[in-house]
Amino acid sequence: MKEIKVENRREGNILSRVFDELNEFCRARSLFILHYCTGCGAIELPPVMTSRFDMERLGVQPMVTPRQADILLITGYVSIKTLKRVMLTYEQMGSPKYVIGICSCTVNGGMYWQSYATAKKLDEYMPVDLYIAGCMPRPEAIISGLRSLIRNIELGESNNWKKYYENYDYYLGNQQKLFGDEWQTPVDVIGEAEHYGLVGEGTYGEHTEILQRVQQPLKPLEMRL
């Protein structure tokens, strides 16, 4: 994957810059979290949410569906079958969105390193903003991880969600390696990139060509008279 420089330049006039600043300020302080509890790390989350560590004081609260969430929290090893669902969930989230991988398993497969059925490195399939390593990380580590994510967002340095659109071909290629060429989610990522002006150098490529060949059409139902 070509490393794409994350642009920190602000666009537009002063007024819209102020709005962007405000947006980022609020975005860093209001994070809805969707925990995709795949493995043992899930057990560390209840203390994070409840009275011992209380993540709500950071503005982080749990949400239920990907539509509502800002953070996708993956708490352990990801089997290939699970990864399909994780991909769908990730794609259904609204941008700006952030991915946190908890436990060593999401970093390098951890103790499932030798398993044929486990996806080893999560960031081959989706851009991960933050890893919290450990087997399993303590709630303190999770809180401090959340804090550093918040700091990154506020500084405007956490724009990994754009990478998924701009480098879609790379991620799709890795997914196709695992799932085969027939792979597609019901989410029209390329259409989204075009709609929101997020097309980058790596959006199209050989893998998206394969996708477009096999893909079931995903046009929205237009209202017609």
Binding site: L22, N23, F25, C26, S30, G59, G94, S95, E192
Partner: peptide, 13 residues
């Protein structure tokens, strides 16, 4: 913060 963030989302369905 919640309301401003939600209205400032970049992509939504």
């Amino acid at each position: 913060y919640d309301v401003v963030k939600l209205f400032g989302k970049k992509t939504q369905v």
